[in-house]
């Protein structure tokens, strides 16, 4: 519909801004671009790394996306990610083998769901805004992570707060020199699954209706309170899954700053995607490319801040485009 040209316009604006910023650095646009491409896609190691950045981000972005469809702004993905990773990291040190890993992943998702449940319940039955409650739960999650990782579940004989290495890790898909985890395949599959679910399933329809017009949804016999709780829990489970995949596929253990802001970046990815779930994939991949290439760009004189500024501008403009439509609805 109207969104595709808007995204194109956004891309053009960002490129122009990039030109502007680059004028202040020693880098030419061409070499910055080549750094970006080479840094992120220049070899099998770089490509693998880009996918490694994009994978948990994409899963976390699906979590944000699902909540947004019900009109919920789940700022708590960060905390749910951390709690999910914590649970997976802990279980992973106890159970071995494929079955143990599966249990650890599901445990992570379940803990993420548990962590988001209060926000959904308070929103539905007590009217407390989910942005406030999830921000608070993020802080609590952070303290729990530090507390447990530096004490009860800390690896014996270690200085830094972290768990022991998990017993079973997720393997890579055999693909020549590339090292791409099976987690990436799961991540790429999720947005498509979400898109299909929203367009075809009755529960997806009811979630959409609740997000689009809660009064009309109520009149249509939809139990909007239940939809809010359910959606928040599903969103939290997906966020927990993102944390779980980070542990089993990449970090192989839990430590408190395991997310490095993935849950917040996921908000940006989801806002860029708007209402099209498949757009989450290129958006998350683009974020992954920028992360992966940023060390090289820094070495060549492009301050790290500029990459962040660029991301921020993309998110703000993307959000503006998205909420311009919502505004008209009051």
């Amino acid at each position: 519909m109207k969104r595709i040209p808007a995204i194109v316009l956004l891309a053009v604006v960002c490129l122009l801004l990039l030109y502007g910023f680059l004028a202040f650095t020693q880098l030419s646009v061409a070499s910055a671009m080549s750094d970006l491409i080479h840094g992120s896609l220049g070899g099998s190691s770089q490509i693998s790394q880009t996918f490694q950045h994009a994978t948990p981000l994409l899963v976390a972005a699906v979590a944000v996306f699902v909540a947004l469809r019900a009109g919920l702004f789940n700022i708590g993905v960060e905390g749910q990610f951390v709690i999910g990773a914590l649970a997976t990291g802990f279980i992973g040190t106890k159970l071995s083998g494929g079955l143990g890993m599966t249990v650890a992943i599901f445990g992570g998702a379940a803990m993420g769901a548990l962590w988001s449940f209060p926000a959904g319940w308070i929103k539905a039955y007590k009217g407390g805004h989910e942005v406030i409650t999830t921000i608070m739960l993020n802080s609590v999650a952070g303290y729990i992570a530090v507390g447990l990782a530096s004490g009860p579940i800390k690896q014996a004989g270690q200085e830094s707060p972290q768990t022991a290495k998990i017993l079973a890790t997720m393997p890579s898909i055999p693909m020549g020199g590339l090292s791409i985890s099976w987690a990436t395949l799961i991540a790429f599959f999720l947005p498509l699954l979400a898109g299909f679910w929203f367009s075809r399933s009755v529960k997806g329809f009811e979630t959409d209706a609740t997000g689009a017009n809660i009064h009309a949804a109520r009149q249509a016999g939809i139990n909007t309170k239940r939809v809010i709780v359910r959606t928040m829990v599903v969103s939290g489970a997906i966020a927990g899954l993102a944390g779980a995949l980070q542990v089993v596929a990449y970090s192989h253990r839990f430590y408190p700053d395991i997310s490095s802001g993935t849950g917040f970046d996921a908000l940006g990815v989801a806002l860029l995607a708007g209402s099209y779930s498949w757009v989450l994939i290129p958006a998350a991949f683009a974020f992954g490319m920028l992360y992966q290439a940023s060390p090289l760009l820094q070495i060549d004189g492009l301050p790290k801040g500029i990459v962040d500024i660029l991301l921020a501008i993309m998110i703000i403009v993307g959000a503006a485009i998205r909420f311009r439509r919502l505004k008209a609805l009051g």
Partner: peptide
């Protein structure tokens, strides 16, 4: 209230 309760405009 048609706009508020009966339909979803978009």
């Amino acid at each position: 209230d048609r706009l508020k309760e009966a339909i979803i405009e978009q």
